[in-house]
């Protein structure tokens, strides 16, 4: 699905040049959830934005479904951390979800049914006519997720999606991602600084080093599905994995 091959990214030029990502290679298979963890400021977001085609790719290659990424690919959706700045406050929830569909040559009927379906997935059918400011933070992030789902991307990118919500909402949203992955067959690449979250959500965890980012280790997460906030997080395998990742990041 996604192949990142010896990808490097440098900010600035000349003496001010700063190497943010150093020859990172990894892949994401269809239907997988891959989490990228690493210390703050290590270049996780830069990596995600590069995959999204929002940065120019100077060195290395990124392939999405076999096509080299040059500019923004058409089958990819992004969920940003800052939902309130990503959503359009002057549009209703339904109009926000519908907005990216408008330039895709879909009929009105098709657009409406996709919006309704996506809002049902995230449990916001009743809020379709409201404006984002009328919703809680967690519900606003659900709108962003619905917007990504309605777009029906091959790959969903999530940049620290739950870093700005409270703990209970965070747990709910994590379970929502797992749910839509199984019901919508979504492939997800999620960036987080929260080790527990990465283990809880992922099929594989990609551990990055401090800046410039390199791949320290890729860990397979062999936890049983469906995952459960209490049972999974309490299991020996979970504790073992999170300890190992913590050790890798500390090093």
């Amino acid at each position: 699905m996604l192949d990142v091959i010896e990808f490097s990214h440098t900010y600035g030029t000349g003496t001010k040049a700063h190497l943010a990502i150093d020859e990172v290679s990894f892949r994401v298979d269809a239907g997988e959830i891959v989490c990228v963890v690493g210390p703050s400021g290590c270049g996780k977001t830069t990596l995600l934005k590069s995959v999204a085609g929002l940065h120019r790719i100077d060195k290395g290659e990124i392939h999405l479904r076999g096509n080299e990424v040059r500019g923004v690919p058409g089958d990819l959706a992004v969920v940003f951390q800052d939902y309130s700045r990503s959503l359009l406050p002057w549009k209703t929830v339904a109009a926000n979800v519908e907005f990216p569909l408008r330039d895709r040559g879909l009929s009105t009927v098709e657009r409406r049914s996709r919006v309704a379906e996506a809002l049902a997935w995230v449990g916001l059918d009743a809020a379709a006519g409201k404006h984002p400011a009328e919703l809680s933070g967690g519900m606003q992030q659900r709108v962003s997720i619905a917007r990504a789902l309605a777009y029906r991307p091959a790959l969903m990118l999530m940049d620290e999606p739950f870093a700005s919500v409270d703990a209970q909402t965070r747990a709910d949203l994590e379970d929502l991602v797992l749910k839509v992955r199984s019901s919508a067959g979504m492939t997800v690449l999620l960036v987080t600084h929260d080790i527990d979250e990465s283990v809880y959500l992922a099929d594989r965890v990609l551990v990055l080093s401090p800046s410039p980012a390199t791949v320290v280790e890729t860990l397979k997460v062999d936890l049983p599905s469906p995952r459960d906030q209490i049972a999974t997080r309490g299991s020996d395998a979970f504790v073992h994995l999170r300890t190992e990742i913590a050790r890798l990041i500390r090093r």
Binding site: L54, A77, V78, R85, S86, F99, D103
Partner: peptide, 18 residues
């Protein structure tokens, strides 16, 4: 205009006029 809105619009390939 918020840069995150700009990134969002680019990522979703919103047309220039829209």
């Amino acid at each position: 205009v918020d840069p995150i809105k700009a990134d969002t619009a680019r990522a979703y390939r919103i047309g220039r006029l829209r």
